Simulated assay, not measured.
Amino acid sequence: MELSLDFTPASDGIVVVDKPSGLTSHTVVARIRKLAGTRKVGHAGTLDPMATGVLIVGINRATRLLGHLQLADKSYDATIRLGAATTTDDAEGEVVATAPVDGVTADAIAAAVDGFRGEISQVPSKVSAIKVDGRRAYDLVRAGEEVELKARTVTVSRYDILDVRPDADGISVDVSVDCSSGTYIRALARDLGTELGVGGHLTALRRTRVGSFDLSMAHSLESLATTFDWLPIADVAATTFPRYDADDAEAAAIRTGRPLPGLDLEAGQTAMFGPDGTFLALYEPRGPVAKPTAVFVG
Results as ranks from 00 to 15, higher is better:
Glu2His: 13
Leu3Met: 10
Leu23Glu: 11
Val29Ser: 06
Lys40Gln: 13
Val41Leu: 13
His43Trp: 11
Gly45Gln: 07
Pro49Phe: 09
Met50Ser: 07
Thr52Leu: 09
Thr52Tyr: 03
Ile56Phe: 00
Val57Ser: 02
Ala62Arg: 00
His68Val: 02
Ala72Arg: 15
Lys74Pro: 00
Leu82Met: 02
Ala84His: 00
Asp90Phe: 02
Asp90Tyr: 03
Val95Lys: 09
Val96Asn: 12
Ala99Tyr: 03
Pro100Ala: 15
Ala110Asn: 11
Gly118Arg: 14
Ile120Trp: 07
Ser125Trp: 01
Ala129His: 11
Ile130Arg: 06
Gly134Leu: 06
Ala137Gly: 01
Glu145Trp: 02
Val147Ser: 04
Thr153Tyr: 04
Ser157Ile: 06
Ser157Lys: 03
Asp160Val: 14
Val164Gly: 11
Val175His: 01
Ser176Trp: 11
Asp178Ile: 03
Ser180Pro: 09
Ser180Tyr: 06
Ala187Glu: 02
Ala189Phe: 00
Gly193Met: 08
Glu195Gly: 06
Val198Thr: 05
Val198Ser: 04
His201Phe: 05
Arg206Gly: 04
Ser216Phe: 13
Leu221Cys: 10
Asp229Trp: 05
Leu231Asn: 00
Glu250Cys: 09
Ala251Val: 12
Leu263Gln: 10
Ala267Ile: 13
Ala267Asn: 15
Ala281Asn: 03
Leu282Ala: 01
Tyr283Pro: 02
Pro285Ala: 03
Pro285Asn: 04
Ala290Ser: 15
Val295Tyr: 03
